[in-house]
């Protein structure tokens, strides 16, 4: 069956963001903690983390996990742990 118009809309967005080489969810998870800390600190992102940023733009699941992680980061910093 054909996709609905809103699904086509989402797909067009995803296709426009598609790159030849992308990291997968496992590779994203391995580096997302560093990415989240750098973003929160307002630091410029080192080149290797660009792939994480891109993955988060095309993967809804990893993006939800990243947003949840951001919610905890002040907590982690406030405790002075790790």
């Amino acid at each position: 069956m054909p996709l609905s118009e809103s699904e086509i809309d989402s797909l067009l967005r995803l296709v426009s963001l598609t790159e030849d080489v992308e990291i997968n969810c496992e590779q994203c998870l391995a580096a997302v903690a560093e990415f989240a800390e750098q973003k929160l600190a307002g630091k410029s992102i080192r080149e290797a983390l660009r792939a994480v940023e891109h993955h988060l733009s095309v993967c809804a699941e990893c993006r939800a996990e990243y947003e949840a992680l951001l919610r905890t980061l002040n907590n982690i910093g406030g405790q002075g742990e790790g």
């Binding site: 580096a31 800390e37 982690i76």
Partner: peptide
């Protein structure tokens, strides 16, 4: 060691 250990462990827990 590129992030705080607890941030890394939390990312795994959230996942």
């Amino acid at each position: 060691g590129r992030s705080r250990f607890l941030t890394w462990a939390t990312s795994i827990a959230i996942h």
